[in-house]
Nucleic acid binder design. Structure first.
Lengths: 353, 353
DNA sequence: CGGCAACTCTACATCGTTGTAGAACACACC
DNA sequence: GGTGTGTTCTACAACGATGTAGAGTTGCCG
């Protein structure tokens, strides 16, 4: 079996606590003692038993990340960023997939697994207004996104309204007027769908244009498939937009697909913009103009805030709400020349915030 | 603070061990006692402290999954499948990203984190022949992929050679003769690159064709960008293929992009096939013909094998090697009509194994 | 040279759970 | 009535680390 501190202590001829002190960098240890202990550790190939340390200290060094689905590129890339940020803080990440199901999101909040982790970064999809009380948990948590807010919990989110407004304004500046929206959640006010649609409406109003409600395509889940279906329904209903604002990139890629299956030329006949700036969009055909919501910044900020909460457990300072910077990345789906010379990944971003 | 078994025991008027027995479903408990304990648990909102249980039992209920990068769709979808399979077994998944760096892969194998987990599902990229000894670890492990084999470790992998051979044969049956390969690792024999290239060579030989080495494009990392670059280099060198076999989907998507930027018509002038069957490929333009390597089956099998190893810790049975079934999914990048009516996700697969 | 501070190290209790061993009782069997 | 079997429950010692408290030792200061 694996060696314990006891074995090391015996071999080095010191007390078990001294081994502990060496391992944890306690300063008052004679150099010769430290060397002896380290040698014993080396010889026995000793590694601390994290479970025991956890029990004693109440810390695990693991944080949980709860997202709907890893197979959605946005969340995969978010997870990637979170893991890297956590690594930088010496933390490991345990991932839970909720599938966007309410029941599973509740489980995450009350979950038996919270003992395994020091804290939670949570990107809810099913919880919403009315569920604020559920966020009153007794462990460190950072919420991502905008489905739900609670004054006592840290939030990291994006400028949804402003970014969507900028995206719409950008399409308007290209001379587009009949701008369809794909991914609308009717009646929603606070989620990404509601906020981004709000930004769209603002930009239209800014330009003195009426919103033609028949241009708004619904889509519950924001997948490639639902984007394509939503676009198909709009076209089948006789709607003829000259631009599409898909509320995320996955749907935008579905839209691109659907339009091209029907022989619609992009961007000449219809310009398409997405939201998220997933890597996939720089290699689609045409490449996808999109809004970069500052995913890395979101991940890094969330991890840092969580780490702070974990460390300063006793001092419950004010909850914070952080907004990441966004920018618009112009590519071939809105500007033909961007496609021509647009070496993927090198496309210049239009900094807007 | 959170309630402990002690608190529950006191409230229910039983010994702490009885509480433990109730929690763990020990049968010999009077119904009335069980009810009293459950009521106390309910009242105190008690949850077992997993850290303490871990320390006592030596099990954590967590398995680690080590992959190169989650932002690569194949690994994101693999992680998705693994998490779901683990969930079905009551296990949680902790993800480590190695970035394909040797150093980090070594860390995973010897890592301090192994105390946190019951076992490891490992998809190496940097380790290779000569590193077999490193796989002699004293914790349960399942290796994915084909970079490295060791007789004492369980492996779950795919029929790389046969699948690549089938993919190439499929292109040949379409009448293509100058089939380029993108993603070659010169000199490699055992990794995915080596094996898939081997399948390609076999299919060419089967058809009595010589392999034109100038058709083989190198690409170290299998990303969208490297696929596009590799394709660009081939074209710039004056190579004129009538088909491309990209050794994975990410590169295939880069290839599609590069070809279209140059105005090459797909599939008329050049047919493209990938490998992995990531969701993204069904929505590209054109949609991507690909090899489905049986990712879900791989994930499920790996988790089940690992769970078995974890459970039967004492009995080191023979290491197994499992190959998942594969199939070819035909879409628009090789058959124009598949694109026309090819509603994404509904494309028919050609079952080949 | 007494007293105090700074080192260096140790013994012991403790974190919250589960395994072991066995007590106590009831019931059946011969 | 002794023996055995089954049921129900408890006391206590682990698991492997860290926190607390304090025992020695040294060196310096006045």
């Amino acid at each position: 079996m694996a060696a314990t501190m006891h074995d090391v202590a015996k071999l080095a001829g010191v007390s078990i606590k001294t081994v502990s002190n060496v391992v944890n960098g306690y300063p008052y240890i004679r150099e010769s003692t430290r060397a002896r202990v380290l040698a014993a550790i080396e010889e026995l190939d000793y590694q601390v038993n994290v479970a025991a340390r956890n029990l004693r200290t109440g810390r695990t060094g693991i944080i949980a990340l709860a997202v709907p689905e890893l197979s959605l590129p946005y969340f995969a890339e978010l997870a990637d960023s979170v893991i890297q940020a956590a690594d930088a803080q010496g933390l490991t990440v345990l991932i839970e997939q909720t599938g966007g199901q309410r029941e599973r999101e509740l489980e995450v909040l009350s979950g038996a697994r919270r003992h395994l982790t020091d804290g939670l970064i949570f990107s809810p999809l099913a919880l919403g207004p009315g569920d604020e009380d559920l966020l009153e948990v007794d462990f460190p948590m950072v919420i991502l996104g905008e489905r739900i807010f609670h004054s006592s919990v840290d939030h990291v989110t994006m400028h949804n309204v402003e970014a969507a407004r900028a995206a719409t304004r950008y399409l308007l500046e290209l001379g587009r007027r009949r701008i369809a929206v794909v991914g609308v959640h009717p009646g929603e006010v606070v989620g990404s769908a509601g906020l981004r649609l709000k930004g769209y409406r603002q930009a239209m109003a800014d330009a003195g244009l009426e919103v033609d409600e028949s241009l708004l395509g619904e889509a519950g889940l924001w997948h490639r498939a639902t984007g394509a279906q939503s676009m198909a329904r709009l076209l089948d209903a006789g709607v003829r937009p000259d631009a599409v604002f898909a509320l995320n990139d996955a749907m935008a890629l579905g839209v691109l697909h659907e339009l091209q299956v029907r022989g619609v030329r992009i961007p000449e006949e219809v310009a398409v913009i997405g939201f998220d700036a997933v890597d996939e969009g720089s290699y689609s055909n045409p490449s996808l103009t999109t809004v970069d919501p500052g995913r890395e910044q979101i991940a890094r900020t969330a991890v840092e805030m969580l780490a702070e909460r974990v460390a300063g457990k006793g001092a419950p300072h004010e909850a914070r709400r952080v907004y990441a910077d966004f920018s618009i990345v112009v590519r071939g789906s809105t500007q033909a020349d961007a496609a021509a010379h647009g070496r993927p990944g090198l496309a210049e971003g239009v900094r807007t915030a």
